[in-house]
Design a protein around this nucleic acid. Structure first.
Lengths: 367, 367
DNA sequence: CTCTTACATGAATCAAGGA
DNA sequence: TTCCTTGATTCATGTAAGA
């Protein structure tokens, strides 16, 4: 995956800073192809009509800030087109983007992502464990938001830490629906009056999963709608670099103080489970060269139905078939492919042992 | 809500029939403003590249039917524009529409709905309890599909049976995420060869919730992509009228036979019973993501003999052993297994607290 | 008959690296 | 660039087969 970074480009980047100004202008001032991941939580274009009151008559503090007002779908689409194009330009070829939204804006963002050539990898549902109820009982409780994860192009080698996410999910594949509480309690930032500092502060747990799953330590993560800096805070904890862009000075101030207090986790804690794919490749022939298996020795298939003989060049022979451990296994099984490492076993002290164990021994020596 | 029906218009409608032909043409032949609800499950425009095999080498039976092939986003958008416009015309002023899709097409459908003046009421996530895994470990398990519920216009008096859905949900408001298994077992229709009759048959439970929640008995429900007729079958059970449109004769035949066998529920049978769900599984990783435990923090064994450090992906590390809370505990104790939830403790205010307490906190939030 | 084990399968944009 | 080789990868159900 894309762990190497063009150091020259990174040196010019304003890392771990919060840049003031309009995100489109600021992104256009940054070097092309320089960012590993973009996380974007743009204005939702909520079309609220009038105030909303709870059954006890208290007023719901709605998102009615001026930055969330768009006069029409056309103006929202123009805005979306422009910031996504700016984001796309600064993304590395193997970089990726996450956007988050609700039904008010996410369909327009998703369509524009596709129109610009981004390649959707998953849509992810943030299922809120404690959503605000629908007080009037006129619709379903709006209990989720939608994230879209996309690579810059079809076929790009995006970063995906499969094993780390699997570990986060108690050993089974991470699914596209994530149950995470909304941000409140001690995590929710308040201003000097005790009011919430930002109306749509995202939970750190959400960013934790995004960053652990789709970046590597040292990667550069840019958030063009930084707000009170959840992306920066979690990036810092997890040993990633961040760039924030935020128009409102009040939010920048809150974010700056917040991030200054964050400590990076120690190195050991940041290591995550990796897949076998990341391990160095060991040719089967090495097992023969090293004398772990002798030429002429017989190997037995995992199902006990087949056997084959090891040859001095690290190929196998069974009946009339010669070839690699994978080729011979696939042929004998009549399968399109076969992982010879787990298919073939040798005998030691009467027991059958997979040859993969010998490969693991060699890899252990390399560490 | 709109329980009164213009009887004259309905008399002209081909009720409880499956109409053959292209759905756009057929809808254009129906009278304007005559349908209460449209449920549409259009082609998803999956852009599949090569074959996919499971780890056991069996081939995945992909959706590669001709009706799901579009040459470009532009041609898919044209198709979407036309069928939605035709659907809009035949909808009553207080009618509503449901569409279902995946990330391949749902963003384009959602944007087009908004462009045509439909008013989105909710987006609903169908969370599959048993989705197909991601066999190559390259992305998240695609474990959901998205539905959009929209009225014909802003301010329309759509039908919403709040209390019925609330009782379907054990007395609390129905949320926008619905957990429903995929359609298989006895419900899945097979052809004479035992193969599935339609590649994308939807579960009746999904339609049941849609129809109970957003129509009244006697309402007319039209499905322009009828397939094997799940919409018609559930509509008939629930005492609603249906109109199906389907291009493929084979599907029409299967649907016709299926619906003929359905009997309308009597009133008593319409009373729904819900079963208690098992306790939700909480992965240990959630405690880390939510900041209840910090990566790098130390955990202590219940007997005080061992300790381990928490990592960012929700695994533990002790000496050289890495793994889940259960694996590391079992290894340290030399035991075949270990319940990590009760074995490991963290320190708060000098006291040792079992990590299971944190799990209980999360479960309490979910209730 | 029950209980256990094996097998089948579902709307899927599902590989990486060296020659 | 293409071609070829290596080799990594699955969860929940329902049904059939076997004991």
């Amino acid at each position: 995956m894309n762990t190497t970074k063009p150091r020259a480009a990174q040196a010019a980047l304003p890392l771990n800073q919060i840049l003031a100004g309009d995100c489109i202008e600021v992104m256009n001032s940054l070097p092309e192809g320089s960012v590993d991941l973009i996380f974007a939580d743009p204005p939702y274009n909520l079309q609220l009509r009038g105030d909303l009151h709870r059954p006890d008559n208290s007023k719901v503090d709605a998102v009615d800030d001026h930055w969330d007002q768009f006069s029409s779908f056309a103006s929202y689409d123009k805005f979306t087109h422009e910031w996504l194009a700016a984001a796309r330009r600064i993304l590395k070829p193997n970089g990726a983007i996450w956007v988050i939204g609700s039904y008010h804006n996410v369909f327009r963002m998703g369509a524009e992502l596709q129109n610009q050539g981004f390649w959707i990898l998953n849509d992810v549902v943030w299922r809120k464990s404690n959503p605000m109820p629908n007080f009037r009982g006129k619709r379903l409780t709006n209990a989720h938001e939608t994230l879209i994860w996309a690579s810059k192009n079809e076929g790009a080698k995006y970063t995906f830490n499969y094993e780390a996410l699997k570990s986060l999910n108690e050993g089974v594949q991470m699914r596209s629906d994530w149950v995470i509480p909304i941000c409140n309690g001690g995590e929710r930032l308040k201003d000097e009056n005790g009011d919430k500092a930002h109306p749509t502060q995202k939970p750190e747990a959400l960013l934790h999963r995004v960053i652990v799953g789709t970046t590597n330590p040292g990667d550069v993560i840019l958030d063009p709608f930084f707000g009170t800096g959840t992306t920066g805070a979690v990036a810092k904890m997890l040993g990633r670099e961040f760039i924030g862009i935020e128009r409102e000075e009040a939010y920048r101030e809150v974010a700056k103080k917040r991030i200054a207090k964050i400590r990076k986790f120690d190195k050991e804690a940041l290591e995550v489970s990796t897949s076998k794919r990341a391990e160095p490749r060991i040719p089967f022939g090495q097992l023969v060269e090293r004398g772990m298996l002798r030429p002429g020795e017989e190997l037995y298939s995992i199902n006990g139905r087949n056997k084959a003989k090891v040859r001095a060049d690290g190929t196998l022979i069974a009946n009339d078939v010669k070839g690699s451990i994978h080729q011979v296994g696939a042929h004998l099984e009549g399968a399109p492919s076969c992982n010879g490492w787990t298919y073939w076993h040798f005998k030691r002290e009467g027991k059958q042992v997979p040859i993969d164990l010998l490969r693991q021994q060699i890899r252990a020596e390399l560490h």
